[in-house]
Design a protein around this nucleic acid. Structure first.
Lengths: 246, 246
DNA sequence: CGCCTAATTGACAAATTTCAATGGTGGTGG
DNA sequence: CCACCACCATTGAAATTTGTCAATTAGGCG
């Protein structure tokens, strides 16, 4: 997706001794000096096919990354949260569009300068590579989800991912924010808005979740949710600590 | 998928101007000196979770790359053909398994040495990056396919991709080889074996394709096939803009 | 507070899966 | 070389899931 996730990953790729550092030590730091921009909810950052002149780092807010096909069908390939990067491809043109789900602040970086910085810095390269690999792993998980999971499994996977993200900043929370619309969720999970809605209703009825307005939701049975997500073995992000009670 | 596609080759084999080259000029050349291996159809090259000690380059034959989830369901995330690379992640362990579809010859490369070679060569880095980007684009196309295409569109997409691959070596052929089983195809397209079979029958009945045994198939109406694939506009627009290197 | 749009709910339709049986291919051994 | 066997593929019918269309409800923003 070239929508690069900023998760964990430490430098296991390059094993040089650390000398004097002429360039910023992290990719995030590259963006620190850049002028920030801001767009309102619903506004397009760029469209599929646009000339890819810049990379963007989300500072605050949420973006949706999407593709459109022939008859207007839309596929959301991912949501981008603060810390995520988008546009690190070497293609001339963006392979997807990006729109603000909520008001979003971001920083921009020229593609050419970015590539130069990456090429010149043996410290930044493995960071970029790690992000690409994480992003590829996420794409694979999405392929698994879309290939053979039921509507319920898809939604539970999504909600569980959201929960994990929330807990990165608030380790004991059980409330997740859903800034996107049901249509966004549907287009992300390869379902319709009605199926998403019905599945939420069903999970609520079983006491697994409880809605808190349209854009938030409380997880009541974390371990049940995790089990229903069906990732089972392959989910190495799985933290037993995430699961409180049954 | 870390299963890196070798589409756009950079022909530096014939540019003998450069004298002393410390590292091979292409990723393919890296593997040239490696000892080749061979496995029979059905044999496992490595499994998901195995320690990722090596990268592999397919020399001859076809591999399937797959993941398994809880109750045994299998997802094939890609097929690998000669020239493709697999295992270029920086994760310690493989995120998927790889098995031979047909008897497959391959070359192996130590992960550490590979990473070192990449790090030390400003020529190899953009090649690897380009492959990763191509692979990411392929993953995205697969996500689009699985998100919102019908069985017929999925199969036509797959067959059209196969046709394009065949024509890379035989530009005017209209026969495609399908070394994998129907189950492989089904697991790749997120369908059942029966649906794949029925869809093939339907396309045959409409005179769009004609089977030639189980493992080959003639495309009779290429443009119809392309239209039914439903990729529409987003297809043939790639010209690789390689990363500037210092 | 009220409106507008998003979300939910219901009834029905369509696509795909599932289950079951038949048919065909290719490989093996006689 | 042929026949048989096992496995893969095809076909059919029924079941299930999800999508579609059409109301109704309710959140959230002005």
């Amino acid at each position: 997706m070239y929508a690069i996730n900023s998760k964990q990953q430490i430098d296991r790729f390059h094993t040089d001794a650390v000398a004097a550092r002429p360039s910023p030590p992290t990719i995030e730091a590259l963006f620190d000096r850049q002028v920030p921009g801001e767009i309102e909810a619903g506004v397009t950052l760029f469209l599929e096919g646009d000339r890819a002149t810049h990379l963007y780092e989300v500072v605050e807010g949420v973006l949706r990354v999407f593709k459109r096909i022939t008859d207007g069908r839309r596929v959301i390939t991912g949501f981008l949260y603060p810390g995520d990067l988008v546009g690190a491809s070497l293609k001339d043109r963006h392979l997807f569009g990006a729109e603000a789900v909520t008001r979003t602040r971001f920083r921009r970086f020229g593609r050419r300068e970015f590539q130069e910085a990456i090429n010149n810095s043996p410290e930044l390269r493995p960071q970029l590579f790690a992000r690409l690999c994480d992003e590829m792993a996420a794409a694979q998980n999405q392929i698994v989800l879309l290939s053979c999971k039921t509507a319920e499994e898809r939604l539970c996977s999504f909600l569980f991912d959201c929960l994990k993200r929330e807990r990165q900043t608030m380790p004991s929370t059980s409330v997740i924010q859903l800034p996107m619309t049901r249509l966004d969720i549907a287009d992300y999970l390869g379902l319709t808005i009605e199926t998403v809605s019905r599945t939420i209703t069903k999970l609520t009825g079983r006491g697994i979740i409880a809605t808190e307005g349209r854009h938030a939701l409380r997880i009541l049975k974390t371990s049940t949710l995790a089990r229903l997500a069906g990732d089972g073995c392959d989910d190495e992000d799985y933290l037993p600590a995430l699961i409180q009670r049954n």
